[in-house]
């Protein structure tokens, strides 16, 4: 049993007011990371603000800006939302590899990125889609590129009193295909040892990698080689990812294996989206 107060928020203002004024306040959307973290001592929550049923956070729609994914939208909803499958398949694939089916019925995209695990399976897909994170708080709203959202392991750019309201997959959508490739120990429900998202735009690619640095990162060197320098040897291009990443050794894999797998999955991903 855990010690905290529970507040079921009536509106967003109530949520960010509590986040602003009180200490050790945690928003609850899916709760799948929060409850595990509280039990394991990672989060010492005094107040939990339940935002999951706020209608403005349940929005999952396509508008003239793009695809809007509210903070309380679950990963299963994302993985089966037709506009996402049609225009942002890489995100559907990433979302689909998070946890198990029951987990994905609770877990949210916003939670996945706010938890800011370097291995978050939706992070790399969002990066290659140029997603924008809509942040709201007592001091107003702001938008941050997903590429700037992560600060370090478990850390993001949210300030006290702020929370993620939604994530936007902006138009224009990529006109090419995308793929999320994940290496894990068992190939089943597991955290990524390395996760690679590749998206083609016209004849260019965008590549992002998870679980290989303090945050999910773009493989800028690879993108440059392929997109600007016209590198046709994709293995050679993929090997440049070594300049973009700095993996560690942990229970899921060694630094050495992660370097290798990032290369392999990047090459395979590019081959796939370019139909090599």
């Amino acid at each position: 049993m855990l010690n905290y107060s529970y507040v079921k928020c009536k509106d967003l203002t109530q949520a960010y007011d509590l986040l602003e004024k009180e200490e050790q306040v945690y928003p609850l959307a899916g709760g799948t990371d929060l409850i595990v973290g509280m039990r394991g001592g990672k989060f010492a929550a005094k107040i939990i603000v339940d935002i999951k049923d706020l209608p403005e956070l349940k929005i999952l729609e396509e508008n003239d800006q793009g695809i809007v994914i509210g903070a309380a939208v679950t990963l299963n909803e994302i993985a089966t939302f037709k506009p996402i499958i049609d225009h942002a398949l890489v995100l559907a694939e990433g979302a689909h590899t998070v946890g198990s089916y029951p987990i994905r019925n609770r877990a949210t995209l916003a939670g996945n990125i706010c938890n800011a695990s370097p291995a978050a399976d939706t992070a790399a897909p969002l990066m290659v889609l140029n997603a924008q994170v809509k942040i709201t708080g007592s001091h107003g709203k702001r938008t941050v590129s997903i590429n700037e959202f992560f600060v370090g392991p478990g850390q993001n750019v949210l300030k006290k009193g702020e929370l993620v309201e939604s994530v936007l997959i902006p138009r224009p959508y990529p006109n090419g295909t995308g793929v999320y490739l994940k290496a894990s120990r068992t190939g089943s429900v597991d955290l990524a040892t390395v996760g690679v998202a590749v998206q083609s735009w016209d004849n260019k690619v965008q590549v992002a990698v998870g679980a290989v640095a303090a945050t999910p990162v773009r493989a800028i060197s690879v993108e440059k080689a392929v997109n600007e320098n016209g590198e046709k040897d994709l293995a050679r291009a993929a090997s440049l990812a070594r300049d973009d990443i700095s993996p560690i050794t942990d229970l899921r894999g060694s630094r050495e294996y992660r370097y290798h797998m990032a290369e392999v999955l990047i090459r395979r991903g590019i081959e796939k989206v370019m139909e090599v």
């Binding site: 529970y6 609850l28 709760g31 409850i35 595990v36 339940d50 609770r106």
Partner: peptide, 10 residues
Amino acid sequence: VNSCLVLAVE
């Protein structure tokens, strides 16, 4: 859902 990851109040 995994009932260990849902709060009773929810």
